[in-house]
Write a protein that binds this DNA or RNA. Structure first.
Length: 551
RNA sequence: GGCCCGUUGGUGAAGUGGUUGAACACACAUGCCUUUCACGCAUGCAUUCAUGGGUUCAAAUCCCGUACGGGUCACCA
């Protein structure tokens, strides 16, 4: 029996030959330095922050080189594939501004001419190449059952040998074609394994764009390439898809580096040109002093909905991810605070090669505060409105009703060189502006803390004197403050802080105490944005009303 | 256990043999400024680069060993 006959027997249903497939996927017409890369998730769940990072980096490398970024769905594990897995992934990523040039665009549709982009639809392609390998005697059917494999492994463990289906353990390698045919005709199930040409005692140099050159032993394991269900394993599909789709760079998590010898070998056996690899370290969590991988189950910040719920701007998340991934990004961003992250040129060499960074929410918060502080008030308003629509209905109603007023509140000490940094997330906003809405202010049980001035009559005197004698809606800030000083003088408080510090005993208090009384009476809080701006937005009538609570 | 990678302050890190008395950013602390808070400014925070040895006039930077951390060893990706 010839190899050809054997291949036809094993894979009689292959529609196209591998040569035909090669022709169907011509070279891409791109500049030589263009990066073609992909995000290739299995549709088994939602992407987490680590996936987002991979995805984002892949996208940036493709875009900044005028290359292609595509989405391929790796659904060869039919057991774990979930319903609508693709659209779920797409939806989450879209919220983070990740879109693809090619690939799946819904659960069923795709764009691009290098598809199908769903591995389950490429069954024939993988089988065509498997057939090629059988014909070339580089692969063989293997009948080893799960139990046999377990037995081998247990024996290897007990005798302290290397684990795996290799060398003399790969005994199906020696089954004759005739025996194999007979067993298959008798109904035995089988997989197809690659006949590894590797020698474990020889080393190969694998080059990773991030980790550098690594010396590793050759792979000598006869890896399964086609599973019992006729679908390929990850390793085989990776080689064929990335070859046919003309991927130039594979950017993925570093849990894959140990399979590199295997992958390189599959490329070689298939006669494919290698792709370049960049393996990203995982994001870590500091769990009581020990580092561990960020976990979707234990750590809310690992899930992507967290950012939407909290109202953390996606731009801030991206800036943070870029900061911890690419070591020269932060300095660049400091120098170009208003630039788009898309203007930064990422470099593999500047991506950290150490074990992984601890995901630091404090740092993200700081980035987010800075980002929000640079937003225009109207932009912030729109963003908060959109957030509140989903997560805070009461606030949403208020925002819709008082659009201009709210924008003015948000504009206090904003749109200037050194804007206030009050908000780290959209969900912080209401906590800091609630008192500006009469509906909220009047319906709440209020608690006032006037700090230094505690006497009720004194508070009343300050408030009453101020509103009746000194307050005017039309004052400029300078006029306004000079009147506050006059009020201080009249009531026996120091209008000048230096004077007060020199002779504290000569006064009842100082201008800060008086301002605090006014501030607290208006807002209940001693920590607010600029008092003058607050007064102007409130207006005399509303100020008066709030003061009257103390008469 | 085999193979691979990593280890610079509380965190992200710069730095690959000599202007490093180890940058910068976050966090933290103190002070200044200020009508509060925030901002801003100033100062402090690793006598030391996991550890032991070696090479060298000189090492965080090169070599070897050890420890610790991570990854992987599926008909899962």
């Amino acid at each position: 029996m010839t190899n050809k006959e054997f291949a036809d027997f094993l894979l009689p249903d292959v529609e196209h030959s591998w040569e035909e497939y090669e022709k169907m996927y011509p070279e891409r017409n791109l500049a030589s330095d263009a990066i073609v890369t992909r995000y290739a998730p299995s549709p088994t769940g939602l992407p987490h922050i680590g996936n987002l990072l991979q995805c984002f980096m892949a996208k940036r490398f493709a875009r900044q080189s005028n290359g292609v970024f595509f989405l391929r769905i790796e659904d060869t594990d039919t057991e774990r594939t979930v319903e609508n897995g693709v659209s779920k992934i797409l939806d989450v990523l879209k919220d983070f501004d990740i879109a693809f040039d090619e690939g799946m665009i819904s659960d069923t549709d795709e764009i691009g001419s290098y598809g199908p982009y769903m591995q389950s639809k490429r069954r024939d392609i993988y089988r065509a190449y498997a057939k090629k390998l059988i014909e070339e005697d580089k692969a063989y059917p293997s009948f080893a059952s799960k139990e046999e494999l377990d037995e081998i492994r247990e024996y290897q463990e007990a005798t302290k040998q290397r684990l795996g289906y290799y060398g003399r353990w790969a005994k199906d390698r020696f089954i004759t074609k005739e025996d194999a045919v007979k067993r298959i005709q008798d109904g035995e199930k089988y997989v197809i394994r690659m006949k590894s040409p590797g020698d474990f005692y020889k080393t190969i140099i694998v080059d990773d764009l991030i980790k550098g050159k690594m010396e590793m032993p050759e792979n000598d394991i006869d890896e399964v390439i086609i599973k019992k269900d006729g679908l390929p394993t990850y390793h085989f599909a990776h080689a064929i898809d990335d070859h046919l789709m003309h991927t130039t760079h594979v950017i993925r998590g570093d849990e894959w580096v140990s399979s590199l010898p295997k992958h390189l070998q599959i490329f070689d056996v298939l006669g494919f040109k290698h792709v370049k690899y960049a393996h990203l370290a995982p994001l870590l969590k500091d769990d009581d002093g020990t580092k561990r991988k960020l976990s979707k189950r234990k750590d809310p910040e690992a899930g992507l909905v967290y950012y939407h719920e909290e109202g953390i701007p996606i731009e801030a998340v991206m800036i943070y991810l870029a900061t911890i991934t690419n070591s020269n990004f932060e300095a660049w961003f400091d120098a170009n605070p208003n630039a788009s992250i898309n203007d930064f040129k990422f470099e593999f060499k500047k991506v950290g090669s150490s074990g992984g960074a601890i995901y630091d929410i404090d740092k993200l918060t700081n980035i987010s505060k800075n980002y929000i502080s640079r937003l225009k008030a109207s932009d912030l308003y729109d963003r908060v409105l959109e957030w509140a629509k989903v997560y805070d209905n009461a606030f949403y109603k208020l925002l819709s009703k008082y659009k201009d007023y709210t924008t003015s509140i948000l504009n206090i000490e904003r749109e200037q060189k050194k804007p206030r940094k009050d908000f780290a997330k959209y969900s912080d906003v209401f906590k800091q502006v609630w008192y500006m809405y009469d509906e909220v202010f009047d319906s709440k049980e209020l608690e006032y803390d006037f700090k230094n001035v505690t006497d009720k009559d004194e508070i009343k005197t300050i408030l009453k004197t101020y509103i009746e004698k000194y307050y005017s809606d039309n004052d400029t800030k300078e006029e306004w403050f000079s009147k506050i000083k006059l009020l201080c003088d009249e009531l026996g408080y120091a209008s000048d802080m230096k004077e007060y510090k020199a002779n504290p005993d000569k006064f009842k208090g100082n201008v800060a105490d008086v301002s605090t009384v006014i501030r607290v009476a208006l807002t209940t809080s001693s920590m607010t944005p600029d008092l003058y701006e607050l007064l102007r937005l409130l207006g005399k009538e509303r100020i008066q009303k709030r003061f009257e609570r103390f008469y």
